Amino acid sequence: MAKKAKSRSSEDHAKYKALLHELQVELVKVQRHIIKHGHKVLILFEGRDASGKDGTIKRIVQHLSPRETRVVALGKPSDRDRASWYFQRYVPHLPSAQESVLFNRSWYNRAGVERVMEFCTDREYESFLEEVVPFEQMLIGSGIQILKYYLDIGKKEQKNRLRSRRDDPLKQWKTSPIDKVALKHFEGYSEARDRMLARTSSPISPWIVVRADDKRVARLNVIRDLLARLACPETNEHLAVPDANVIFTYDEAHAKAGLLAT
């Protein structure tokens, strides 16, 4: 029985790797199109701790040209950052023509971690919610295409992943003081997520929610969604079809229907 289970696991992994390879080939085609036409692409990844942002970004950029691809993961804001316009520290990292930039957490930190952990004031939080959509509209008006992904996982899955981080010596770099209280504040993060999605999803920069309890399924569907939204003539349209049960453009009805983790 154990051998059969191991065989099935090996088959599933091989199938996943084959699908991932197909999709990564399509991403290379899309990048060539972006470079050829001078497009500017900005992809934001948000989500709870251990929701799979790192792994998803890794698979997206794995075979892309490093000259035209940048991953941005900013650390704790400095005193100068805190004394500046909130969005100022992010502006230097925005894409120029031919570039694709992926933010592993972004300015939406203010609507998530900073809000829940009380790293910002109520006034700063409300100002952010009022300013972020006009800010993104300005970026879009300048020619930047923005895609915003929120990776959503349940409490049980988050607990398992955080335990894995703690116990795996190769994942120690991922641990942080925030991780230690993530589960304690799970409901607070749910409330912050719901308000952020409702207040900052707009017709021209909507949130794309990813049900990410299954890491592999989430990764494949994020790439499929990217292929659909960054379509180019060379893309295999049959591969650019994400599963609507896994990934969808946010709508308030989704929260009411219980499609978000609580």
Rank of each mutant, 00 (worst) to 15 (best):
R229E: 04
L260K: 04
V217K: 02
A255S: 14
R224K: 15
E252G: 15
H254F: 07
L260H: 05
H238R: 15
L227F: 14
A244H: 08
A240V: 06
R229T: 04
V210C: 00
V246R: 03
H254G: 06
D214L: 06
D213Q: 07
P242F: 01
V241W: 09
R216C: 07
A212W: 05
V210L: 00
H254A: 06
P242R: 12
D214G: 06
K256M: 02
P242L: 08
R224I: 03
F248Y: 01
D243R: 07
A261Q: 05
A255T: 13
R211L: 11
D251F: 06
R219L: 03
C232I: 11
V217S: 06
D243G: 08
A257S: 02
E234N: 14
P242T: 07
R229M: 10
A255H: 00
A240Q: 05
N236V: 12
L260G: 09
D213W: 10
H238N: 15
T262Q: 13
L260F: 02
R216H: 13
T262W: 03
V210D: 00
L239I: 11
H238I: 12
A244R: 12
A218G: 12
L260Q: 03
L227I: 15
R219T: 13
L227Y: 10
P242K: 02
H254T: 07
G258E: 06
A244V: 04
A240M: 10
A231E: 12
N245T: 11
A244M: 11
V246T: 14
K215I: 05
L259W: 11
A218R: 06
R229V: 04
H254P: 08
G258I: 08
A255M: 10
I223F: 11
D225R: 09
R211W: 08
V210E: 01
V209S: 00
A228Y: 15
L230D: 02
R211Q: 11
L260R: 03
T249C: 07
K256D: 07
V241F: 04
L226V: 13
R211P: 04
L260E: 03
E252D: 13
A231D: 10
V210I: 10
V246L: 12
F248P: 02
R224N: 07
R219V: 13
A228W: 14
D214W: 01
N236G: 09
H254N: 08
P233T: 14
L220K: 08
K215N: 00
D214P: 09
I223G: 06
L239M: 08
H254L: 05
T262F: 05
A240P: 09
V210T: 02
A253K: 04
E252T: 14
R219F: 12
E252L: 10
D243W: 05
V222M: 12
V209M: 00
W207M: 00
P233N: 14
A212V: 05
L260D: 06
V222D: 06
W207A: 01
R219I: 13
R219K: 14
T249L: 03
R224G: 05
A228F: 15
A212N: 01
K256E: 13
L230W: 00
